[in-house]
Nucleic acid binder design. Structure first.
Lengths: 204, 204
DNA sequence: GTCTATAATGGGATAGAC
DNA sequence: GTCTATCCCATTATAGAC
């Protein structure tokens, strides 16, 4: 019964690969560099993965599982705009404290858009789903109701997060990012109304 | 006087490199592939560029020069929101008609964030400057005035464009993108007031 | 000056020893 | 089953022929 050991190896290789990509980028993540990081012989690689591309796909799936919007600060009920600001600032702090995490994501996504479009599509769908549940929770905290279909708002929110990430990564301007966050929070908050309110009879 | 021929070669190599990256990604853009695309002998490469990284930097600079927001449709004066929608939809059409252009950008940026941060910073600064002048022009068309410093709005706008691009590239959902554009236009239009109006005495 | 031919390296994959 | 040693290919860069 070496099945467990096999799964362990696979997991260790994926983790090692992510560490290498974080340090050196995807281009530097050779099979040799990865097994060195995992402290395994080279043979172990092709024992677990048929090919290098297989590993990259495994890396994508692994990254996808990690939740992007981990830390919504839920200190009591408040204004929706405040909730959104705090949530987005939590994300920005995460980004600032470990940029490599999103750097890996960017690197792998740039590769996968060409070589494994399905995996990328799954990945971004997962992000949108995460955004959706976060937004649902935020509205609950603030006791408001979204005035547009939540999946559409989530698409916009996830897109805004992509933009915030990419722009910050290319410039590392925390102040500008925080100003932008306040703008985002205001813009999204405008899509909700008090839960008790009558439906506005106009629509868009 | 072969100086001109030298510059021509350089330009041709950069263009060839961009075509190869568009087709195969940065990883596939080997010196050999590039000179083959340019129909030159391999020796010509190192005659012009000392190293491959030098070429990549040249590619970044070349891409940066191309304006991102080329086509603001300026058919007469209208609502700011309409102007923004038309401008963003113009960009989206451009993106849809030639996704490889932004794909190259993404690929090169992912590489350069690690290997040439200054070049990336210059690049994104250029985008922000482009956004700034586009927004200035849009306000003129709609006869409104921005209520926040234009460079801050431009930061947000460029970031929104990054997000739109990345999210579309990963999912290719044009309908969702167009819904998102309407949301963006509404959000940014909320940052402007009629040019004649008194300054609102509250500020943020 | 231009390019061919080659050196030197590092890569993915595998055959076969243990 | 596990890993060492090796194959073979592609790459960057260069040395030297034209």
């Amino acid at each position: 019964m070496r099945r467990l050991a096999y799964a362990d190896r696979r997991a260790e290789l994926v983790d090692a690969a992510i560490r290498v990509i974080a340090r050196e980028g995807l281009a530097g993540a050779s099979t040799r560099a990865i097994v060195a990081e995992a402290d395994m012989p080279l043979g172990a690689f092709h024992y677990v993965f048929g090919t290098r591309d297989e590993l990259v796909t495994a890396v994508i799936d692994q990254i996808t599982e990690q939740e992007r919007l981990a830390a919504w600060i839920d200190a009591g009920p408040t204004d929706l705009e405040d909730v959104l600001v705090r949530g987005l600032e939590g994300y920005l702090r995460l980004l600032e404290s470990d940029p490599t995490r999103e750097l890996v994501l960017l690197d792998v996504a740039a590769h996968a858009v060409r070589h494994d479009p399905d995996a990328v599509q799954r990945q971004w769908a997962t992000y949108r789903a995460g955004a959706e549940s976060s937004l649902r929770y935020a509205a609950e905290l603030a006791d408001v109701r979204w005035t547009a279909p939540l999946d559409e708002i989530a698409w916009s929110f996830a897109s805004a997060l992509d933009g915030l990430t990419l722009t910050w990564l290319t410039g590392r301007d925390g102040e500008a990012a925080r100003r932008h966050i306040r703008f985002l929070a205001r813009s999204f908050a405008a899509l909700a109304i008090p839960r008790s309110a009558q439906e506005a009879p106009d629509a868009h």
